[in-house]
Simulated assay, not measured.
Amino acid sequence: MAREKIKIKKIDNKTSRQVTFSKRRRGLLKKAQELTVLCDADVALIIFSATGKLFEFASPSMQEMLGKYKHHSNNNLQDDVNEPCLDLQLVEDDEVRLPKEISEKDREMRQLQGHDLQGLTIDELENLESLLHGGLSRVLQTKDEKFGNEISYLQEKGAKLMEENKLLKQQMMMISNGKQLQTMPVEVDDLMNTHEEAGQSSESVTTNMYSCNSGPPTEDDGSDTSLKLGLPFN
């Protein structure tokens, strides 16, 4: 049967707490001793009970272990003090290194622009030429892509404008046809018959038609015939 796992929390009962302390203390001291023997480790263990009673174990001795601990603590403190100095040294190194890198990059930029080429070897010149050719090809490719995109955009815009123009023409024709239907001219014969029934002469009808049409029709030069409305004279 498996043992019930004890929940780790403070034991409220004082007697049970003291019994548990005694058992666990003996087990802890035994484990420390076993660790020293099995692993050849230097172990120091200090325990104070709830009543202030001291229990300790040390191998090889508590005084020697405390001396080692103090020496180790002082070394760690010294390392902590030296760390800012190391950071300061790194900053100083960066201050020396960065101007050199900036100067080198500036020189490379001037060489790409065609300056300061006298001190370069043939291999360095060939490398520079290769860099320039590669950069030029990328520039031309990017420029062609930009031109292509611009042309495509303008073509699409032109097609949309032509379509809009076509729609506007169709709308204008529809509006014009609608006005013509509303202002159809009256037939001449119907107009004459109407006035004759009303007792008007053909001359008055002709006069009225001239006045409606802003004057008589113009006769062409050299023409022997003309259109006359009304009855012939005897």
Rank of each mutant, 00 (worst) to 15 (best):
N13Y: 05
M184Q: 15
K10N: 05
T36E: 12
K31Y: 01
Q141N: 11
G134K: 07
K100F: 06
P60E: 01
N76G: 13
P84Y: 07
A159L: 09
D220V: 10
F21I: 00
G52H: 05
V188K: 06
Q118T: 07
T183Q: 11
L132R: 11
L181S: 13
V205S: 12
N74F: 13
E150Q: 15
D40W: 03
R138K: 15
Q182M: 12
E104F: 12
E56W: 02
V81P: 03
S137K: 14
Q89I: 06
P60W: 04
S226G: 10
K157L: 08
M62E: 03
D220S: 14
R24N: 04
S214R: 07
L167S: 14
F21T: 01
I102Y: 08
P84C: 04
T15F: 07
K105F: 02
Q180W: 01
M162C: 08
L161A: 11
V205K: 06
E95H: 12
A2I: 11
H133M: 09
F48H: 09
V139E: 14
P84Q: 05
Q111G: 00
L136K: 13
S226Y: 15
Q118Y: 08
T51F: 01
T36I: 00
G148S: 08
V139H: 05
L229A: 08
G67C: 12
E163C: 00
K30Y: 05
I11E: 06
N234Y: 06
N13D: 15
L45T: 02
D42A: 11
N149A: 15
Q155P: 00
M65E: 04
L88S: 13
G67E: 15
F48I: 05
E203C: 01
S226H: 13
A2F: 09
D87H: 09
A44P: 00
Q182G: 05
G52W: 03
L28Q: 00
R17F: 02
Q63D: 14
K143D: 10
V186T: 15
N177F: 08
Q170C: 03
R25F: 00
D93C: 07
E126W: 04
E163I: 01
N75A: 15
S103R: 09
F147I: 13
G222N: 06
S223T: 13
P232I: 06
Q200A: 15
D220W: 07
K100L: 12
K146V: 02
D79W: 04
G135V: 01
K100M: 03
T218H: 04
E164P: 01
